[in-house]
Nucleic acid binder design. Structure first.
Lengths: 122, 122
DNA sequence: CAGAATCCCACCCGATACTG
DNA sequence: CAGTATCGGGTGGGATTCTG
């Protein structure tokens, strides 16, 4: 590695990357696409609660970052597929680990919050 | 795993956890504390660009979530140490993988953006 | 030293409606 | 089906100042 990126450094590009990861819907897109290509409507129904506008935004930025590929089929009715790029797949792994952690430890977090809030109340 | 958490489900608590993890400074706090306890000022100088207010906010929520322990020493001048809890350490691993990915692939992302933007300009 | 208080704004996100 | 257009609000984050 010749160029050195350090997230602890202000203005380091890697911070921008970290923030992409940490937006509300991006990780869920990865989770949705991890099984293979999906149409827009499928992504939308897979990720509950996302509105078309926000989903489009998210997919666009992921496409811009080279993490998602968008394929348009010239047919009626329209069909657009989304899938992870090879680069996107390399990110899927670490991201999926975080997701798995979140699902596995959500209960602990909620408990900790309860404890903390009770302690504050007293 | 008895209780089922699924980030793809709306209103699933794991989503809240994911967002906590994915805020702007939380991952950097993990990175800063991964070597052991640090004083407030040390955390602050380690994470470049963070203001005291936001750092305090971040540390508080992480403490509330049981991921960071805050220790106050009764002395003058004041001293407060922050360190990862055992639960926090279990999160450090997956989080650190993401950080490593971000640092390793920041350049690719930037390249992809440039390509995308040029293609849009035409 | 370790923050609290205050002010403020960008922007992220959501709801709704509309279209090729 | 796969979006776009428009409007609006909530809040995460920043700059500055002050304090035990």
């Amino acid at each position: 590695m010749d160029t050195e990126f350090d997230v602890l450094n202000n203005d380091c590009p890697s911070r921008v990357v970290l923030q992409r990861i940490g937006d509300k819907w991006a990780p869920l897109v990865f989770q949705a696409l991890k099984g293979g290509p999906l149409r827009f409507s499928s992504v939308r129904s897979t990720i509950q609660g996302v509105t078309p506008k926000v989903l489009t935004q998210t997919l666009r930025t992921l496409e811009r970052d080279g993490l998602v590929r968008r394929t348009v089929f010239a047919q009626v009715p329209p069909r657009v597929d989304y899938e992870l790029t090879p680069l996107g797949h390399t990110l899927l792994e670490p991201l999926d680990a975080v997701r798995a952690w979140a699902e596995a430890n959500a209960a602990h977090i909620l408990d900790a919050r309860e404890d903390y809030d009770e302690r504050q109340a007293s």
